[in-house]
């Protein structure tokens, strides 16, 4: 309500108050209903926090449990999964992105259906792909690699297509005027503009895949996540802490390296 109407018609202020009380009551009722539905009790909450405290205490000091080489190998495997998944995704996304660009395939109907199709697949997270691929190809990093690739392809295709559409048409026309075939127009007119943008996007995806790869390990797709899950099951929290710390260091190292690479690419 504006100040003006509140001054001229004071009745409306009461309405606002009534409405406020009504909404608050409704909100509170919803919260209570949810707590009852989920069976949340203060006793359960206290017990859970108590256990969490015990876990935290068990984490200090972190220890590799004499398995350092195995943990390191798993970490490298995770990085390899992220790299392989990203490469596979990029390889598939390049042609899919070119097809999806408005200035390459000039058919609005095709373009609309194609892009919406990509959007649908973009909604499926890597974890879901991992569950499917682990079921199909068995436990191990292979399913994880495929899952990362499958999750990246729709997003990367869309990004590549948009990068192509935003390219400067001038150089392309310059190449076309030299009597060059469409494929070489792409090679000399568009690709040089695209390469740094696309490389930068690929590095972003490598970073995020390295972070996602740990979660995939937990559903059986190999790597550091697998080691982590094993140790949580046997309550070896000092080793869990060690792996988590090592992983945080590795992730930030990769992020720094990739950020530096992206800067030099510009």
């Amino acid at each position: 309500m504006s100040v003006m109407s509140a001054q001229t018609r004071p009745v409306t202020r009461n309405w606002g108050l009534v409405r406020g009380i009504l909404w608050t009551a409704l909100g509170l009722a919803a919260v209570v209903a949810m707590i009852m539905d989920l069976g949340l009790s203060p006793k359960g909450m206290a017990a859970g926090f108590g256990k969490l405290g015990q876990f935290l205490a068990a984490m200090v000091p972190p220890s590799d449990g004499g398995d350092f080489s195995r943990i390191l190998a798993a970490l490298i495997e995770t990085l390899a999964m992220a790299l392989a998944g990203t490469c596979l995704g990029v390889l598939a996304a390049i042609p899919l992105g070119i097809i999806g660009a408005k200035n390459v395939v000039r058919n609005p109907v095709f373009h609309f259906i194609y892009r919406r199709g990509l959007d649908i697949f973009r909604g499926v997270p890597a974890l879901v792909w991992a569950l499917i691929f682990v079921a199909a190809f068995g436990l191990g990093p292979f399913g994880g690699v495929l899952a990362l690739a499958a999750a990246d392809i729709p997003s990367l295709s869309k990004l590549f297509a948009e990068a192509l559409e935003n390219g400067d048409p001038g150089p392309v026309e310059g190449v076309r005027a030299a009597g060059v075939s469409p494929l070489l127009e792409l090679r000399f007119g568009l690709a040089p503009q695209m390469a740094p943008i696309m490389a930068s996007q690929c590095l972003y995806f490598l970073e995020s895949n390295f972070r996602n790869a740990a979660v995939l390990g937990i559903v059986g797709a190999g790597g550091i996540g697998f080691e982590l899950e094993e140790r949580i099951r046997v309550f070896a929290f000092d080793q869990v802490a060690f792996i988590i710390l090592l992983y945080i260091v590795a992730v930030s190292l990769l992020d720094t390296a990739s950020a530096w690479l992206r800067r030099t690419l510009r």
Binding site: G170, G174, V180, L184, F188, P192, Q193
Partner: peptide, 27 residues
Amino acid sequence: RCAMIFQQFNLAPRLDVITNVLIGVVA
């Protein structure tokens, strides 16, 4: 056979000069 020169040059800015010139024979 009928080369064109543009107001905005229309070179590939990220390619080196000699490659830009070589685009003239690529066809």
